[in-house]
Amino acid sequence: MKQVMCSCALISGDGANDVSMIQVADVGVGISGQEGMQAVMASDFALPRFRYLQKLLLVHGHWCYSRLANMILFFFYKNAMFVLLIFWYQFYCGFSGSAMIDQWYLIFFNLMFSAFPQLVTGTLDKDVSAETLQQLPQLYVNGQNSEEYKPYMFWMNMIDAFYQSLVCFFIPYFAYADSDVDLFTWGTPITTLALLTILVHLGIETKTWVRT
């Protein structure tokens, strides 16, 4: 039996006698070898050799944490911004709960327009190259210390959503102030401007462009 345990409750094993430990661990890694496939079938990740455990932790573990942290922050940001657009309109409709955005835009804005780009970056974004992560194993400590998901980062994203929603709402509002356009014709530029702002924000936050 071979096993590796760390502070994040990661356990790896290569035999049937390791199955119970793998199942109770936060992350279980099964090694396929001469002792059979029981450990692999009970694990979260399967590796053919123990030597690949280093890359799994230092490279893919780091990337996974970085992607998840940034994806969660972005989803909070984009949803808060979109809701705030409708909130500002409530001051002009007597808080009736109506929206100036077409129902199809309301459905697809979060379902597709702003979700797919983030799912791509949440799957493929790499803040540091694999070579650098293996050469500098101390970078793994960033995930253990939650360096990319601090409370102040959440509130910074909420502040971004607040003032960006103000800009996206009131630019079309003042542009159409003296016109006789209908409600949805006025709401469409607001939606478009908000979507472009969210995508630019995502592009700035994507670390692949500047990775080392």
Score class of each variant (00 low, 15 high):
M1Q: 10
M1G: 14
V4H: 06
M5S: 13
S7F: 06
G13K: 05
G13Q: 06
G13V: 00
G15I: 11
G15P: 13
A16N: 07
N17P: 03
V19Y: 11
V19S: 10
I22K: 03
Q23K: 15
D26P: 07
G28N: 02
G28K: 02
V29Q: 02
G30M: 03
I31K: 05
G33T: 00
Q34R: 12
E35K: 11
M37R: 01
M37F: 08
A39Y: 06
V40P: 05
M41S: 14
A42P: 05
F45A: 14
A46G: 15
P48N: 14
Q54V: 11
K55L: 01
V59N: 12
V59M: 11
W63L: 00
S66H: 04
R67N: 01
R67Y: 08
L68Q: 07
N70A: 02
F76I: 12
Y77P: 00
Y77T: 08
K78D: 00
F82P: 04
V83T: 07
F87I: 05
W88E: 13
Y92N: 06
G94F: 00
G97D: 11
M100W: 00
I101G: 10
I101M: 13
D102P: 01
Q103T: 08
W104R: 03
W104F: 03
Y105W: 12
L106A: 07
I107R: 02
N110P: 01
L111S: 14
L111F: 15
S114D: 04
S114F: 00
S114I: 03
A115C: 10
F116W: 13
F116H: 07
F116K: 01
P117A: 15
Q118K: 05
V120W: 14
G122E: 00
L124F: 15
D125Q: 04
S129M: 01
E131M: 07
E131Y: 09
T132N: 10
Q135D: 12
Q135K: 09
L136S: 09
P137T: 08
Q138N: 02
Q138F: 03
Q138Y: 01
L139M: 14
Y140G: 15
N142Y: 13
S146C: 07
S146M: 06
E148H: 13
P151N: 09
Y152F: 15
M153G: 11
M156Y: 09
M158G: 02
I159R: 04
I159M: 11
I159P: 01
D160R: 10
A161C: 10
A161T: 08
Y163M: 12
Q164A: 15
S165M: 14
L166V: 14
C168L: 05
C168R: 01
I171L: 09
Y173L: 09
Y176C: 04
V181W: 05
L183F: 07
F184S: 14
W186D: 09
G187F: 02
I190V: 15
T191L: 05
T191H: 05
T192K: 07
A194W: 00
L196R: 04
T197L: 06
T197Q: 08
L199H: 06
L199F: 04
L199Y: 03
V200I: 15
H201M: 03
L202A: 14
I204P: 03
I204L: 13
E205K: 03
W209V: 11
R211T: 10
R211S: 13
